Amino acid sequence: MNKPRNLTTIGFLFPGVGLLAVFIIFPILLTAWVSLNHWSMLTPLSEMNFVGFENYSKIFDQDTFKKALVNTFMYSISNLIVMIPLSLILGLLLYQAALKGTAIVRTFLFLPYIIPSVAVAIVWGYLYSPMYGPFNEILDFFHLPAQQWLGSLDQAMMSLVILNVWQTLGYYVIIVIAGLTEISQDYYEAASIDGANAIQKLFYITIPLLKRSMSFIVIIMTINTLQVFDPIYVLTQGGPANSTTVVSYHMYDTAFNFGNAGQASAMAFILYLVVLLFTILQLRLFKTDY
């Protein structure tokens, strides 16, 4: 009697599972296979030469790849350090019903997130321009020295972090607000009866009950920042002196400019494993049920 029901279940699941297999699972397996071969993208797949783990050993011998790996981690960590407290503070402020205009502020905060990253990078490239950019014009107004921004070894990476914070902060603030709406007011009423003040309510009720929302923010932000590509490609091309070269850009450069798809696939698979590892560690750390 359960056979027709099982067939119906399989029938409903097949389109979704099929798309998952075609667009996610198969590309991952193909990338893993290509990473074990020497192959130029100018030749068919049938002409690949199997070399085992040679591509992996070669990329770890490259100073550029090691630098890109460090830059990727630094970019991700910098975003986490800046955006997690900012999103929490802004979310708590904009959740207050007593404040007027919060809906408008939420809208303006979220708008940059829906703008294409390439368009955002082009605009910020103008803002960061050392010759006529508005940021240096503001510094000149206050009689401060002009900065190189994207042309500086010390400032280029942080300039990209600021760009990403401006573009994506609103998204994470909305998640914090959504988490706050799920907290029952009964907890706060009970705490008030017990004599708890606002600070105690924040640290003993709000923040602990926001754990699921904050864990989601940390995981999604880690995944997104470890895969950063658009602003690097548009603004710096990994410069100056590889100070903004990240794994995704170095992978693109290796595959399309140097024609070495085997090493590029090895970089892509390593990045995939890094993202997967960090996601699993964060899920276990926060002990969520996702």
Rank of each mutant, 00 (worst) to 15 (best):
Q185V: 01
L163I: 11
L139T: 04
L80H: 06
S87G: 04
Y171E: 08
F229Q: 08
S192I: 04
Y128F: 15
Y171K: 10
P208V: 03
I183K: 01
T222N: 03
A103D: 08
L285M: 14
I174P: 06
P134T: 07
D230S: 10
M221A: 09
I77G: 04
M48G: 13
N224V: 02
I220Q: 13
G238I: 12
I217R: 00
F278Y: 12
Q227C: 05
L209F: 13
F73R: 08
I138D: 03
N224H: 07
K67Q: 14
M214R: 03
T107G: 14
V165R: 13
E137C: 02
Y113N: 11
L226C: 11
Q167T: 07
I270A: 03
A32G: 06
L169M: 14
G125F: 07
T8Y: 13
W33E: 09
H250P: 00
S248I: 07
P112K: 07
Y188R: 04
W33N: 03
I205G: 09
P130I: 05
S57R: 15
N55K: 10
L285V: 12
E189K: 11
E189N: 12
M221I: 03
A121C: 13
T288R: 04
L150Q: 13
P231L: 08
D253R: 13
T107Y: 09
M157W: 01
Y171H: 14
L210A: 06
K100Q: 10
Y187T: 00
G151D: 12
I174L: 15
F73M: 13
F53Q: 08
L109V: 08
Q148E: 15
I84R: 02
I177A: 02
P116K: 11
S213W: 02
I193A: 07
F53R: 02
L273S: 04
M74I: 11
T107Q: 05
P231T: 10
V22N: 02
M74V: 15
F216H: 09
F12M: 13
T279Y: 09
N2P: 04
T225I: 02
